[in-house]
Write a protein that binds this DNA or RNA. Sequence first.
DNA 1: GCCAACGTTGGC
DNA 2: GCCAACGTTGGC
Length: 139
Amino acid sequence: MAYWLFKSEPETWGWDDQVAKGDAGEEWNGVRNYQARNNMRAMAIGDRGFFYHSNKTREIVGVVEVIALSHPDSTTDDPRWDCVDIKAVHPVVTPVSLDQIKAHPELSEMVLVKSSRLSVQPVREHEWNIICALAGIDV
DNA sequence: GCCAACGTTGGC
DNA sequence: GCCAACGTTGGC
């Protein structure tokens, strides 16, 4: 299983919105960036991801699961863009902030730190484990 | 609200 | 195929 990180502005689409969709989940649509799209194309059903709030709070707030493989993005007719569906699995006990991640020596190589603008990004397994520990949740 | 970083677009 | 212009993102 692979691990990912999904970034969103909570004003646009936040963790609460994701939770409200329940097990039906929702398209992670609106991505117009090739790298982010390619990451979604590489996802498998059952892959896990962190849900990150950008801008104001800047922290990981929950865990999501991929429930549909990459398919056309319903918000555009442009065939270049597609997206996966994800559902909320559970919230974190303690949100993990960007500051914490930057300060942690073993997390300093994270894509979140290195390439802060990429909205869908891979997370290495040991990074996943460290953050789960910080967040107070089981892997 | 500012601005740096970066991706995309389009003219040549 | 290059590169300048432009738009967007996201941290501060």
